Computed example of a mutant assay.
Amino acid sequence: MAIAEFTIIPIGTGTTSLSSYVADLHKELEKHTDIQFEMTPMGTILEGPLERLFEVIRLVHEVPFLHGAQRVSTSIKIDDRRDKHATMEQKLQSVKDKL
């Protein structure tokens, strides 16, 4: 199980507001019920098999183009832990247990 955080930034949209693009990205993510996702103010976190996360990020990367963006910048961070099962919830709980 891998955890990935990504940020998609449409460039050249003619406005500084990106919330409509973010809403479109969220709608696309909801179609992929086989993975977990959590949107944050600065990006989105996905949880699932690594190959599937790459696939979903690629699909979501295309969404701004479908809504008029001419350029899109996507940043991705991946935590692919293979020595034990790790989830978004487990990672947070591990820190909370130490507080």
Score class of each variant (00 low, 15 high):
M1D: 07
A2I: 00
I3V: 14
I3Q: 04
A4P: 15
A4V: 02
E5R: 13
F6K: 05
T7R: 09
I8N: 06
I8K: 13
I8T: 15
I9V: 11
I9R: 04
I11Y: 13
I11L: 10
I11S: 02
G12C: 11
G12F: 00
G12A: 06
G12R: 12
T13K: 14
G14A: 05
G14Y: 11
T15H: 13
T15I: 13
T16Y: 15
T16A: 01
S17Q: 14
S20V: 03
Y21S: 03
Y21E: 05
Y21T: 01
A23T: 13
A23W: 02
A23N: 08
A23F: 02
D24A: 15
H26G: 13
H26R: 09
K27H: 11
K27C: 00
E28I: 03
L29A: 06
L29M: 07
E30Q: 15
K31M: 14
K31G: 08
K31T: 14
H32M: 09
T33D: 15
T33A: 14
D34W: 00
I35H: 06
I35K: 03
F37P: 10
F37E: 10
F37H: 14
F37W: 15
E38G: 00
M39I: 15
M39L: 15
T40F: 03
T40S: 13
P41D: 05
P41L: 04
P41V: 08
P41H: 06
P41G: 10
M42V: 12
M42Y: 15
M42G: 09
G43T: 07
G43K: 06
T44N: 00
I45L: 09
I45D: 03
L46A: 01
L46I: 01
L46C: 01
L46K: 00
L46Q: 03
E47R: 02
P49S: 03
P49R: 04
P49D: 08
P49K: 04
L50N: 02
E51K: 06
R52Y: 13
R52F: 04
L53N: 01
L53M: 01
E55H: 11
E55L: 14
V56P: 04
V56I: 15
I57A: 00
E62N: 12
E62V: 04
E62W: 09
V63A: 08
V63E: 14
P64W: 13
P64S: 06
P64G: 09
F65A: 12
L66W: 12
L66K: 15
H67W: 01
H67E: 10
R71I: 05
R71L: 01
V72L: 06
S73K: 07
S73N: 08
T74R: 02
T74N: 03
S75Y: 12
S75M: 11
I76W: 12
I76P: 09
I76V: 15
K77I: 03
K77M: 09
K77Y: 00
I78W: 06
D79T: 03
D79K: 11
D79G: 05
R81K: 13
R81G: 00
R82D: 00
K84M: 12
K84C: 10
H85N: 08
T87K: 07
T87G: 08
M88T: 11
M88C: 10
M88V: 15
M88F: 13
E89I: 07
Q90K: 15
K91S: 02
K91Y: 04
L92W: 08
L92I: 11
Q93H: 07
Q93V: 10
S94H: 14
K96M: 08
K96H: 04
D97F: 06
D97R: 08
L99H: 07
L99F: 08
